[in-house]
Amino acid sequence: MRQVSVHSLTIGDVLGKTIFSSSGRILLGKGVKLTPLFIAKLKDMGLSILYIEDDRFDDVQVEDVIREEHRREAMEFLEKSTRSIQLGKNLNDSGLKNIIRKIVEEILFKKDILVNLMDMRSLDNQLLAHSVNVCVLSTVLGKALLFDREKLETLAIGAILHDFGMLQLDPKLITKTGDRTPDEVELLKTHTTLGFEYLRKRKDLNLAVAHIAFQHHEHLNGTGYPRGLKESEIHPLAQIVGIADLYDKFTSDHSDVERIMPYEACEILMGLAGTLYPLEMIRLFLRNIAAYPTGITVRLNNGEIGVVVDQNLSMPARPIVRVFDESEFGTNTMKEYNMVEKRTIFIQEVLG
Results as ranks from 00 to 15, higher is better:
I11F: 09
K17Q: 13
I19V: 14
S23T: 12
L28K: 12
V32N: 04
L34D: 10
P36M: 15
K41R: 14
K43I: 07
G46H: 12
L50D: 04
E69Y: 10
M75H: 09
E79I: 11
K80I: 12
T82I: 07
R83G: 01
I85S: 00
L91P: 04
S94N: 07
L96Y: 06
K102F: 14
F109K: 15
L117N: 11
M118L: 14
M118K: 15
H130N: 11
V140H: 01
K143G: 09
A144F: 05
F147S: 09
E150Y: 09
K151I: 08
G165H: 03
Q168T: 03
K176H: 12
G178M: 06
T181E: 13
P182D: 14
D183A: 12
V185N: 02
T190L: 07
T190I: 08
T193K: 04
G195S: 05
L199E: 06
Q215F: 08
L229F: 06
S232V: 07
E233G: 04
H235M: 13
L237R: 05
T251F: 00
V257R: 13
E264H: 02
C266H: 01
C266M: 05
G274H: 03
P278M: 14
E280K: 07
I282F: 05
R287C: 11
A291R: 00
G295S: 14
V298I: 12
R299I: 02
G303R: 01
V307T: 10
V308C: 05
F329P: 03
F329L: 14
T333Y: 04
E336K: 05
V340L: 10
I345N: 02
G352P: 06
